[in-house]
């Protein structure tokens, strides 16, 4: 309804350009999505947790009680106490401080990996869907081959080539995510490319690049936003898994997966070394997934009440 009102307003006052209509349509769609999202308790809880975590990550030097790299051998493997809320690790570092600083690393890894995957995947997917033909076959062939590697295996294969390290993990996880974005972006493009406003844009002389960038990309975004949200969660899980295997962040970096890897050696005498970093991963991924589920419901017109 809001959509209709927006268009009537524009038509009533002056001749609307196609672009203005699309902008207004997107604005009204955004308000519908936000309203749907506000009604979803899970999404609100997820979003609140995520915002809290981002704030803690940004303010890490202010909120962390200790330097995450500072060793104190005399305080090694001390259990949770008022002095060290999450206890200390094998060299006496404060686990709470390391978990807080770890949030910076994990969120950065998630965002950078998803940016790599979304940028390359969406570009290739839109090109494949828009041009079709042989280009489409080549791009989709590439996507299908990459999808033929299960889960973490592709990331491991890329690590084999690039070598271990946090930066290489981001690239590996990013490349691993590309085919999914190709598929989704291509699917959306196929349904959008024959819409009237695209034909209209072509009729007024827009070139292909402009059509893809200004008309197809904004309308293909909703499913991609959901994918990017849950993609951050998946990237954090995979990257921490690789660090757990010793192929990602290297000591003494306070990365959650690497901390878990170090903690498993002391599981018998100091459970807290492995439990708190794992809890941090789970809460982060859970909050992002809850937000992603809410976004998916809000962006799906069939589920709107």
């Amino acid at each position: 309804m809001e959509e209709g009102i927006a268009q009537q307003l524009v038509v009533g006052t002056r001749a609307a350009t196609a672009q203005e209509c699309i902008r207004l349509k997107q604005q009204s769609q955004l308000s519908i999505v936000l309203r749907q999202l506000r009604r979803n308790r899970g999404a609100i809880v997820g979003l609140s947790l995520l915002i809290l975590e981002v704030l803690i990550a940004i303010a890490a030097p202010l909120v962390a009680p200790y330097n995450p790299l500072e060793q104190s051998p005399l305080a090694a493997l001390k259990g949770p106490s008022t002095k060290h809320l999450f206890g200390t690790d094998d060299v006496g570092r404060d686990i709470l401080s390391r978990v807080i600083y770890g949030a910076r690393i994990s969120l950065r890894v998630g965002l950078i990996s998803v940016s790599i995957a979304a940028t390359i995947g969406t570009t290739l997917g839109i090109i494949a869907g828009f041009y079709g033909g042989r280009l489409d076959s080549v791009i989709m062939g590439l996507a299908n081959v990459l999808l033929a590697f299960p889960g973490i295996l592709l990331a491991l294969a890329i690590i084999a080539v690039l070598g271990p390290g946090l930066f290489n993990v981001m690239i590996a996880v990013g490349i691993g995510g590309i085919p999914t974005y190709i598929r989704v972006a291509r699917g959306s493009t196929l349904s959008i490319r024959n819409c009237d406003y695209v034909t209209g844009a072509r009729a007024v002389g827009c070139n292909n690049n402009r059509i893809m960038l200004r008309y197809i990309l904004p309308n293909a975004l909703p499913p991609l936003i959901v994918l990017m949200t849950v993609g951050v969660a998946g990237a954090i899980l995979t990257a921490s898994g690789l660090s757990f295997l010793g192929l990602g962040a290297q000591p003494p970096t306070p990365e959650w997966g690497a901390m878990l890897n170090a903690g498993r050696t002391y599981l018998r005498q100091a459970w807290w070394v492995a439990v708190f970093p794992g809890l941090a991963i789970t809460i982060t991924v859970l909050s992002i997934n809850m937000l992603g589920d809410g976004l998916r419901d809000a962006l799906d017109p069939k589920l709107r009440r």
């Binding site: 899980l237 492995a274 794992g278």
Partner: peptide, 16 residues
Amino acid sequence: TLGVSMPSFWLGLLLI
């Protein structure tokens, strides 16, 4: 939702 979010390596360590 918790199951989808929990890393298998952490769950493994908790089980151990």
